[in-house]
Nucleic acid binder design. Structure first.
Lengths: 278, 278
DNA sequence: CTTAATTCCGTACGGTGTACGAGAATAGAG
DNA sequence: CTCTATTCTCGTACACCGTACGGAATTAAG
C-alpha cells in the first residue's frame, strides 16, 4: 500500500499533542515539517501552495477504534453538500447549511473534512461515481472519446456547479480515477504514450468544463430578459459606431440558431480531429 | 449612439426617488421593470439571471454636472484593484482593501461601481487594454490565430487572476471589443460566417483561460513540495493496487519533461487544425 | 437665498470559514 | 471496577466579507 507512518490524517485527532507524538528537537525535524497550514490557491492564481493533501484525504485508514463513535459519516455529509449544490448552487454550500442538513453542529463537520476546500473535493468525487462505464472501449477511439466527452457533458449539466468546482486544481479520488482509467484505455489505440494520453484527457475535461460552464451561464442569462436585451442594445450600439465593422457583420449574420448541442459537437469534433494529427 | 432614456446608470444617483423620474402608473410601466435586483450567477450555475447591466456599465454618460465633484475615478479604483490582484491574488481584492489603496472610504467605491461584480468586470477590461495589436492580419489565418492565442496566454500569465475572473460570463468592454475586432478580422480568411467566427474566438479564449488556469495551479503547487510529494505517493499507491493498469503505465512513462510551453503549443495546434476542417 | 443632485463615508447588519476548548462517549490498562 | 487516553460533538467567538442605510458635505440650478 503506502508507508503510512503514524496517523496520517488531516482531521483533528487528539488535542494536547496533535497527532503523531513529536517533541521539538527530536529527529526528522526537517524541512518537510508540513505542519504549516498549506495556504490554498483558492481560485485566483497567486497565493502559493496547493490545496489538499491527497494522501491524507484518500488513503485514510479506518483503524481508529478508540474514543467516541462517530455520529455521522463522510458519505452523509458529502451527500448533503451535493444535494444542496444541486438544488441551490455552489454558494448555498456553507458549513452551516450542510451541518443543518445532516443534523449536526457546524463544527462537527471538521471531524470529517479538515476544511471546506476538502469538502468540495469530496463532493466532486462523490458525483463522479455516477460516471458509470457500460462497456469496454470498442476499437474506434474517436467514437469512444466522443462518448466520454458527451458523458462528461451530461454529468456536468446534471450538476451545474461542477465546472466551477473543477476550475481549481483537484486531486483525483477513487471515482474520478475509475473514469480516468477508462478514458486512458479508450486512448490506447491512438498510439500516444501514457503521459500524452493523460494530457489529452485533462485537456478534454477542461474543454468540456469550460464549454458547459458557458452553456449554463447562457441558459441562466435567458431567465432575466431585461439584462439580455440591455446587452443586445449595447452591442448594437457598439456595432453602429463605425469602429467595429467585424462585430457589426457578425451581429448582422443571418442568425441560424446555434443550439448548444450542435456547438458542443462541432468543437468536440475539432478537438478530436486535432488529437489525431500528431 | 443609443436611446439612453433618462439617466441610465446603475450607480446611486440621487436618494429620495432613485434616478429616472417615474411615477407608479405612468406609461411604459411594462414587464421590463428592471428595478428588480438581478440575482447574479456568482460562479456556480444555479441561481438564475445574469450579473451586470452592459448598457448601464459601458454606455455611461458623462453628463451629470451637478452635485459634489468626484474625488476619485473609475480608472484609479480599477487600477488599484488590478494592482492588488496582481500582487496578492483575487482574494485580496476586497472593497475595504481597494478603498484603502486609493485612500477612500469603503462605501465611496459604490459611487463608481454598483457592486463588486461590476468592479471585477472593470478590472478585466482594464487589463485588456494591454492587448495591443501591432499589425493587421497577414493572410495566414492559422499563424495569426496562433499569435492571438499566445498573446492571450502571455497576458493571462501576467495577470494570473484572469482565468478565474473570466470563468463567469462577462460582457465585453471597449478594450475587449477592440481585441475581439482584431480576432474576427484574423478569422476572415477561414470563410466562416460572422457567428461562427465569434464562436471560434469565444472557444479559443475559453481554451486559453482553461489551460493557463491549470498552468498556474501547477506552477503554484510546485512551491509546496510536501503536497506534491504526497500526491505522487498517493498516485503511486493507486497505480500499485492492480486495479489501475492504465494509470500505472502512464505514470511509468519515460518522463519527458512536458514543458508548459510545448504542451500549450501542441493543444493549440490541435484546436486550430480542427477549425480548418469544417 | 432655496432646492435638488451628487459624492463621501461611518455605522451597522447578516453572512462567512474556522480556532478554541469544554464536555461527552468509548476503549484499553490497571 | 477505576483511571486514562483518545475520539467525536458542538457552543462560543473572532476576524472578515459585501453592502444597505442615511447624515453631512459639496456643487449647480432655479
Amino acid at each position: 500500500m503506502v508507508p503510512a507512518r503514524g496517523h496520517p490524517d488531516g482531521i483533528r485527532r487528539g488535542r494536547p499533542q496533535d497527532g503523531c507524538t513529536r517533541r521539538p528537537g527530536g529527529p526528522e525535524d526537517q524541512v518537510q515539517d508540513d505542519q504549516v497550514r498549506g495556504t490554498t490557491v483558492s481560485r485566483d492564481g497567486r497565493p502559493d501552495a496547493a490545496g489538499v493533501d491527497a494522501e491524507q484525504l484518500w488513503l485514510r485508514p479506518a483503524e481508529p477504534r478508540r474514543g467516541r463513535r462517530p455520529s455521522f459519516s463522510r458519505e452523509a455529509i458529502t451527500g448533503a453538500a451535493v444535494a444542496l449544490a444541486d438544488a441551490e448552487g455552489l454558494d448555498a454550500v456553507t458549513m452551516r447549511r450542510v451541518a443543518a442538513q445532516v443534523g449536526a453542529g457546524v463544527m462537527s463537520l471538521y471531524s470529517y473534512a479538515p476544511d471546506k476546500e476538502t469538502l468540495l473535493e469530496l463532493m466532486v468525487d462523490h458525483v463522479s461515481g455516477e460516471l458509470v462505464i457500460k462497456e469496454p472501449p470498442s476499437g474506434d477511439w474517436r467514437a469512444d472519446l466522443r462518448a466520454v466527452a458527451h458523458l462528461q457533458r451530461a454529468h456536468m449539466l446534471r450538476h451545474p456547479w461542477l465546472p466551477a468546482a473543477l476550475s481549481t486544481r483537484r486531486v483525483p479520488g477513487p471515482n474520478t480515477l475509475a473514469f480516468l482509467e477508462h478514458a486512458l484505455a479508450v486512448l490506447r489505440p491512438t498510439g500516444l504514450d501514457g503521459a500524452a494520453r493523460l494530457e489529452v484527457f485533462a485537456q478534454l475535461t477542461a474543454f468540456v468544463a469550460g464549454h458547459v460552464g458557458h452553456e449554463i451561464a447562457q441558459r441562466a442569462a435567458v431567465r432575466s430578459p431585461g439584462r439580455v436585451a440591455a446587452e443586445a442594445r449595447y452591442l448594437a450600439a457598439v456595432a453602429a459606431d463605425g469602429h467595429h465593422p467585424e462585430l457589426a457583420e457578425a451581429l448582422a449574420a443571418p442568425g441560424r440558431p446555434l443550439t448548444p448541442d450542435a456547438t458542443f459537437a462541432r468543437f468536440l469534433g475539432r478537438l478530436i480531429d486535432g488529437v489525431g494529427t500528431d
